[in-house]
Design a protein around this nucleic acid. Sequence first.
DNA 1: AAGCATATTAAACAAACGTTTTAATCCTGT
DNA 2: ACAGGATTAAAACGTTTGTTTAATATGCTT
Lengths: 220, 220
Amino acid sequence: MFVLCMENTDNNLESSSDTRNRLLDAAEKLFCQRGFEGTSVRDITAEAGCNIAAVNYYFGSKEKLYEEMFHRRLSEKIQGHMKTIERVCARPDATLEDLLRELVRPTMESALRGDTWSRVVRFLVREALHRRFDRDKIAEELIGKFFERLAAAFQQLLPGLEKRAAWRAALTFESLVMHPILFFEMYDLVLPGFTVEEITEQIVRVGAAGLRSCLKGTAE
Amino acid sequence: MFVLCMENTDNNLESSSDTRNRLLDAAEKLFCQRGFEGTSVRDITAEAGCNIAAVNYYFGSKEKLYEEMFHRRLSEKIQGHMKTIERVCARPDATLEDLLRELVRPTMESALRGDTWSRVVRFLVREALHRRFDRDKIAEELIGKFFERLAAAFQQLLPGLEKRAAWRAALTFESLVMHPILFFEMYDLVLPGFTVEEITEQIVRVGAAGLRSCLKGTAE
DNA sequence: AAGCATATTAAACAAACGTTTTAATCCTGT
DNA sequence: ACAGGATTAAAACGTTTGTTTAATATGCTT
C-alpha cells in the first residue's frame, strides 16, 4: 500500500489509475470554484465518485493533492506560452505586435469564454497570493524560465533593448495580460459588451507603444 | 444586548467601543495574513485580547465583521486616490505624467515597504477573486465611481480622447499599478534590488506612452 | 484455484470550527 | 447606594474538518 503516494511522476504510466486522475480533475474543478480551504476532501471525493480515504491513499494528504494539481496546470500554461514565443520568434519578419497579439488573443478568448483555463489562472493567482511564492521552488523556477524567454524575445524584436529593461518590459507586459483575466467582471461593468477584439487590440496597442518607450528611456 | 450589532455606521460615535475597534484591527491583520477561511474567530479574539463571544456580540457573525473591515479599507483606499486626482487635475499645467506619477509612487512605496496598506490591497484582491464581485453592491459602486473619475481625468489631460477609450485607458493603467503590488516577490526575483524609482518610472513611462497611443488608434 | 499485492469501502478518530448560552462583571444615571 | 442595561467571561453547543483504521473487494500471477 501507499506505493503510489510517493513521488509519482510521469515515468510510470501504469500508475495513473482512473480514480487518481478523477481526483485530480475534481480537485481542480472544486478548488477553482471555492478555493483550497473552501473545498473539503469529502466534496472532492464525492465529485470524483470515490471513497473519502482515496485522497490520502493516492496523495498522502489534501495538501499534496493540491500541489500536484497546481504544478501540473502551471507548467502546462507556461509551456504553452513558451511554444508561442518560439513559433513567432522563428519567423524572420516577426514584429513586436505579432508576438503580443499571439500571446494575448488566446488568453483573452479563454477569459471571455470563462472556461476552465482562465478559472485555473485565477485560482493559481489567488493561491499564489495566499501561499507565499518564495516557498515553492518548482513554481519559482517555472516562472523564472518563462520570463527569461520572454525578455529574450523582446530583445530580439526591439534591437538595442538593454537586458534589465527587457526584464522590466516582460513584467510590464504580463501586467496588461493578467489584469483582464483577474478582473473580468469589472471589465464587463466598466466596458459593457466588450469583445475579445477590443481588449486584445487595446493590450497590443498599449503594450507595443509602452515597450518601445523602454528603448529610449534608460533605467536611472 | 446586541444593540451595536445592527447597522452601526459612523453616526453614533459613542458606539465605537475599544474592543470593537480592536476586533476590526485584529481581523484586518489576520485576514491579510491568512485569508478569511484561514483565520478563526479564536485567532481574532486572541489577537484583540478579548473573549470569543465578542465577535458575535458586536458584529453578529464572522462574515459581518469581514464585510465591515473590507468596505472600510476599500473606501479609504479609493477616496485617497480620488483626492490625488482632484489635486493634480486642479493644476492648470498638469501633464499626464504628473498624474500617473502621483498615483503610482505612493502605492509603490507602500508595496516595497510591505506595510499594512499593500497587504490589505492584496487581501482585497484575493477575496475579490474568491467571493464574486457582482454580489457586493457597495464595492461595485465604489469602484465604478473611481474609474469614472479616472477616465474623466484622462480625457482632461489627453484632449480628444474618446469616452470609451478613456475607460479602457483607466483599466489599462490600473493593470500596471496592480501587478507589482500583487506579485511583489516575483519582481524581487526577476529584478533583484529594484527600487521605488525604477518601478515608478517604468510604469509612468509605459503608461504615458501607452495611453497616448489610445488617442491615435480608434476602437474597432 | 490459491495467494497476494492493490484498491476500495464504511466507520470512527480527534481536533477545530462558528455560534450560543448562561452567568458574572462593569459602568452609568438616579 | 442601588437598579439596570451594556459588556465581558467561561463553558458547552452541534458541525465539519482532515486523517486513520480495519475490513472487504478486486485483479493478476503462479
